[in-house]
Design a protein around this nucleic acid. Structure first.
Length: 818
RNA sequence: GGGGGUGUAGCCGAAUGGUCUAGGCACGGGUCUUAAACACCCGGAGGCUGAUGCCUCGUGUGGGUUCGAGUCCCACCACCCCCACCA
């Protein structure tokens, strides 16, 4: 073998990669007939070059897309960039970079890496969310939602990240910290645009049954939406009769309500306590506490203030004291609760702290009777109702239903459903995003920018050095406008931009016609393609992007722009690439970058290493994987092929040749099942096994057609994972065209049938030997063969066989008594 | 506090209730070589045996169901993820 025949990925890969890109080899052909498939991978944010996480997900995704093509599908496999967002602004502020130049330079770099790695993307449908001809339609969607009443403006206590200087949606607050920069989030009253995602809360739960997603992700969405069933109950202020509604999931415990609690910000409290300095001081104190402190569930951390009035319990007319306390939140339920300390831990903690009465109204059945004096925690569970007048003795669920019904009869309550989900705050006080397409007119209020004036473009001359929002502080952007309805010259533009998650909530629709300037997408194309057949990406978007995209699709459906209920039919999540158990990051200095791998071993090795490391959904610890091992195997495949081409002669029949021929079909059968199940790691293991058998067959003198079949089949199986080496060797093997355009090999069922099978022989469940019998042998034949095995016979000699268990083609088990 | 998941060689990981550990990594021994690298071959807990072999233990721990359990059931332990003063 000469040097020219060595496996040298660095010289064979780049020309093939460039050819695929330049010739648009993997662009979707709209005229193609036959079955279509939409394979979508989450588009990247261009914060720099691709990192290992991209290398993993795109390699998994590309194996899927290429496999489906070989299965005869016409695959749409688009790529684009989620190119609006804060990092570009930070680069501008910190380094004086132009956010546009910075962003598009990064896109170019990532694109070159994708080409180098051989990903079979459609380079004809590329989009960037920061292009005006993209965000023109993002703004259009905002206006569609606005005209349908699904986008609205209100003042609210919103999440504010002091570092990013912007509002965040609830979904972007992780344990009280900013999702992007990890700074502690504070609450701030601001007037903001919201999308009414809560209108779709029930559908967002129910339609999870329609999609094939990991159960884990569905569960996360259900938890996030947080549906709970209970009742709204009306209490009265003792002296004035003012009505206050509370929400409770346990109306059966109404008789146990011994006090009442308002959120400190509750308007009724604010009004009634307006002149009380002590109360003002209390509110001031509470508001100074950070979210993190408030999140503490420590029993002693609750803060409360006795109010100047009492409340009346509607079920028994009892007068109970009213408090304000920080453990009641203004934005869940009604901002006021009935407190049942015996059966709610938070109420219990507060009652003990304030020395408030505790009354047991649910008695657990399989435990000692609860005693309000001595109990040291609330009993939140089930039991029989006690101390509740006419309801005594009923099981708690029945009490719940009856009390709710009785209250409803008296007009004092009703069954109610509550959600944890809040409306989506979409305004951002940042400037590298699509401007909110609204105009504020002193006489008309908020007015939509007319369609023919879209897009509202970002000014080119934003100053990112300012302290605050560059767009808001731009000299003319806000004021250079008149009201479209009344012509008022004092009208101003909205200077907020839309959350990047708005950009990414519909990009899979824009891929269908990225250059159409008449419409965002042709409806008939959307109806043909949506939902996307397979969506691949990280689980970190479980309650962010994936929830928003589902909402936007449902809203657009209701507005008549498409028919689909859901954006993504099937979802696979890949794990993270970590190093020594920790996330890779620049600041930790533990980054392994893709070029380090593909510049040494080639792209095929990078891709193969990723897929062989573990099942896709598991994290890959780079410390545990071995690019050199993958490279060694690929070199072996290369060498076997080249050596065969040098010297193809050999036996084409006989035992070794037959064994190889069988091995081909076994590998095809197994690998196909694995590809269908996304188990690329075991698919590769089966290809390695075939390689081992091929090598052994060669050593035994096998050659000719059987070996060529084995090599060709191996190349086909490997093609979706390692596209370059397979393409090169396919050509060297003298085959026409591209291996990627061949049809996926089929296993011949007859070749999978064994003539003889090895039976396991057990005595009392312990393996005592094996014996070979003809496949399909009946129980008697199996037993006879098993008895004849020397070692087994030893165990049967002095024993009485009580029972013989036979499993066809698998085992014989003798159950014996001594 | 609530919910979900996972525990298999030194490591990553396979394993329709049927021979535990496919494939790889790492490691050790060998062949080739002046030598190394590469490549190729062999190895895998413990005990007995000169060896072929045979036996015992063994899938986080302890029980159970079963002819037979990594797999099913119960309890416990450890780790991971999601939600969390959500009434």
């Amino acid at each position: 073998m000469t040097d020219a025949d060595r496996y040298d990925p660095l010289s064979i890969e780049p020309p093939i990669a460039e050819r695929w890109h330049d010739e648009r080899t993997y662009s979707f052909d709209p005229d193609a007939s036959g079955e279509r498939l939409y394979a979508l991978t989450m588009f990247p944010y261009p914060s720099g070059d691709l990192h290992m996480g991209h290398g993993e997900i795109f390699s998994i995704h590309d194996a899927f897309a290429r496999y489906q093509r070989m299965q005869g599908k016409h695959v749409l496999n688009p790529i684009g960039w989620d190119s609006f967002g804060l990092p570009a602004e930070n680069a501008a502020r910190n380094r004086g970079a132009d956010p546009r130049e910075w962003t598009y330079a990064n896109i170019d770099e990532q694109r070159r890496s994708m080409v180098r790695l051989g990903y079979s993307f459609d380079w004809d449908t590329v989009l960037h969310t920061s292009d005006p001809d993209y965000y023109r339609w993002t703004q259009w969607i905002f206006l569609e939602l606005f005209s349908a009443g699904l986008a609205y403006r209100k003042e609210a206590n919103v999440n504010w990240c002091p570092s990013c200087q912007t509002v965040l949606a609830n979904e972007q607050v992780i344990d009280g910290h900013c999702e992007r920069c990890d700074t502690e989030v504070v609450k701030k009253p601001l007037t903001q645009w919201f999308f009414k995602i809560t209108d779709y809360a029930d559908q967002l739960i129910e339609d999870l049954d329609k999609v094939e997603w990991p159960e884990r992700v569905k569960l996360m969405q259900r938890n996030w939406i947080g549906r709970s069933e209970g009742a709204n109950v009306t209490f009265e202020v003792a002296d004035t009769g003012e009505e206050v509604v509370v929400y409770t999931t346990r109306p059966d415990t109404l008789y146990g309500a011994t006090y009442f609690v308002f959120a400190p910000e509750h308007p009724l409290v604010q009004q009634k306590m307006a002149d009380d300095d002590d109360f003002e001081a209390f509110v001031e104190d509470v508001s100074k506490r950070s979210e993190i402190e408030r999140l503490s569930t420590d029993a002693s951390s609750k803060r409360g203030h006795r109010l100047s009035f009492d409340m009346v319990n509607p079920v028994n007319g009892e007068t109970i004291p009213a408090y304000a306390a920080d453990y009641v939140l203004m934005d869940y339920g009604t901002g006021a609760i009935m407190a049942v300390p015996a059966h709610d831990q938070r109420d219990f903690d507060f009652a003990r702290q304030q020395d408030l009465p505790i009354r047991v109204v649910v008695q657990p059945e399989d435990a000692d009777a609860l005693d309000a004096e001595t109990m040291d925690e609330a009993h939140a569970g089930e039991g029989r109702t006690v101390n509740s007048g006419p309801y005594d003795g009923l099981p708690w669920q029945e009490t719940k239903q009856r009390i709710t019904a009785d209250l409803a009869d008296k007009g004092l309550g009703e069954a109610a459903v509550n959600y944890r989900l809040r409306d989506w705050t979409v305004s951002r006080q940042r400037s590298w995003g699509p401007p909110v397409p609204m105009i504020h007119c002193p006489s008309c209020g908020p007015v939509a920018v007319p369609d023919d004036e879209l897009p509202v473009e970002l000014p080119e001359d934003l100053d990112f050095a300012v302290d605050g929002s560059p767009l808001a502080l731009h000299p003319t952007f806000s004021t250079d406008v008149v009201c479209p309805e009344c012509g008022n010259e004092d009208a101003t533009r909205d200077t907020d931009t839309l959350d990047t998650f708005v950009d990414s909530s519909w990009y899979f629709l824009r891929y269908l016609s990225p250059n159409d300037d008449e419409q965002p997408w042709p409806k008939q194309e959307a109806d043909r393609w949506i939902p996307v057949d397979l969506y691949s990406g990280g689980v970190e978007h479980a309650v962010l992007h994936l929830l928003y995209a589902r909402f936007v699709v449902k809203a657009l459906r209701d507005l008549g722009h498409l028919d689909a209920d859901e954006p993504f039919q099937r979802l696979i999540n890949q794990g993270q690439v970590i190093l020594d158990g920790a996330a890779m990051s620049k600041s930790k200095g533990n980054l392994v970058e893709p070029p380090e791998v593909y510049n040494e071993y080639g792209a095929d090795t990078l891709r193969g290493t990723m897929l062989f490391a573990s099942p896709p959904e598991d994290d890959i610890d780079w410390a545990d994987v071995s690019p050199s091992g993958m490279h060694r195997w690929l070199s072996r495949v290369w060498r076997l092929t080249i050596e065969f081409l040098d010297d193809p002669d050999g036996e084409t029949d006989g035992q070794a040749a037959e064994a190889l021929e069988k091995a081909i079909h076994v590998a095809v059968d197994g690998a196909t099942a694995d590809f269908d199940a996304f188990k690329y790691n075991t698919a590769i293991a089966k290809m390695m096994t075939l390689t081992n058998e091929l090598q052994e067959a060669r050593r035994s003198g096998v050659g000719g057609r059987v070996v060529e079949d084995a090599i060709a089949t191996l190349l086909q199986l490997l093609a979706p994972i390692c596209p370059f080496i397979t393409e090169e060797l396919w050509t060297r093997l003298g085959r026409d065209g591209s291996v990627h355009e061949t049809r996926w090999p089929q296993a011949d069922p007859e070749m999978l049938v064994e003539e003889n099978v090895e039976l396991v022989v057990q005595v009392n469940g312990k393996v005592r030997g094996t014996v070979t019998v003809a496949a399909g042998a009946d129980a008697a034949a199996m037993e006879a063969a098993a008895r004849s095995e020397d070692n087994v016979a030893r165990y049967l000699d002095d024993a009485e066989v009580a029972k013989v268990v036979t499993v066809p083609d698998r085992l014989v088990n003798f159950v014996v008594r001594d």
